[in-house]
Design a protein around this nucleic acid. Structure first.
Lengths: 173, 173
DNA sequence: CAATCCGATTGCATTTTGCAATCAGTTGCA
DNA sequence: TGCAACTGATTGCAAAATGCAATCGGATTG
């Protein structure tokens, strides 16, 4: 359940945190998909996580310090999960991982457009995104003046543009 | 054994490649430790991989295109494993992963000095290292003139310096 | 010619995962 | 008020992955 400590190597310890098939998927959906509720995470991910695994991983990620949980004031049963700074600093790793996958693995076009945008934006865009996440999850003030489309909105718009194009001109794909 | 294809998302597909507890450890020992034989990998890793798991992962990494295997001319039974370009381009991800682990996880000093050096060297040092790996594993000519200490030698020297200091002045640690 | 080393493989117990059903409490609507 | 839908989980069970120790036949070394 929690960490093994097979060795004090940074790469090994990082692997012990998200070297499984689900932890990083959950963080991906929270970071890029903006999902913060149990059911949202359960139904949103294309990979179809099981509810017991999701419950287990959320608990584990909290123990490890990557997530916090709070009551949703609008609904006595709803819990709202927040990213910690520890999780937010995974953004560059996610970006690299996406870029690597785009080059070497059989990614689908509509799902990789976000990775492409993130790659092209480079560290500067990542910083802006992390700033927005800190605002959203930690209540910190935005460093930069809020630009009209947030990074997540840009990613979402790019995704929708690809989907729309695919519907309109399916033969050219 | 091989890939699931739960979705075409780049992050998911990357996770399906090394979202387990051992694949990246093996690649780490090959990349940073310079290990290329079965026994070397078996005995070298501090994490203590079992021989059947090692055999399974080597086979899997070959199927996925991250490794190749060749006969060692000096010994009819020895096999020598080589990194492919696909694996070599993981160096920046490894560097980021190490840097993240160094910040957030209880790494040991002697094992994290390499990650620190790699982080400080930045993309330029990573490129040099990848160039050396391409030379070593793919037989490509070195782009840059061979600098006296290779990157791996620098990493190794830094590690040994920490260990030596710890032996000499254990009380200050 | 015996000891050691080579890359694995086998058998078996333990752990993790996937899947479906289910839980008790909360909310929205009629 | 009553009831269906939804909340974040939990349970039971089968299947798969993992950890561990012993072992394999062949090659090399002393």
């Amino acid at each position: 359940m929690s960490i093994d400590r097979r060795s004090g190597c940074p790469i090994n310890l990082s692997l012990e945190v998200f070297g499984d098939r689900w932890s990083l998927i959950i963080l991906r959906d929270m970071i890029f998909g903006g999902k913060r509720h149990f059911r949202e995470l359960l139904n949103f991910s294309l990979e179809g996580i099981a509810s017991n695994i999701l419950a287990d991983r959320l608990k584990r990620l909290m123990q490890l310090g990557l997530l916090t949980k709070a009551d949703d004031p609008s609904h006595k049963q709803k819990a709202i999960y927040s990213l910690t700074e520890m999780a937010i600093t995974l953004v560059p790793i996610m970006a690299h991982l996406g870029a690597w996958g785009r080059v070497w693995l059989p990614v689908s076009e509509e799902l990789s457009i976000r990775a492409e945008l993130l790659e092209k934006g480079g560290p500067q865009l990542w910083e802006q995104f992390m700033d927005e996440l800190r605002h959203e999850h930690l209540g910190m003030p935005l460093k930069a003046p809020p630009s009209a489309p947030t990074v997540r909105q840009q990613l979402q718009a790019a995704y929708e543009a690809v989907v729309a194009r695919k519907v309109v001109e399916p033969s050219t794909v």
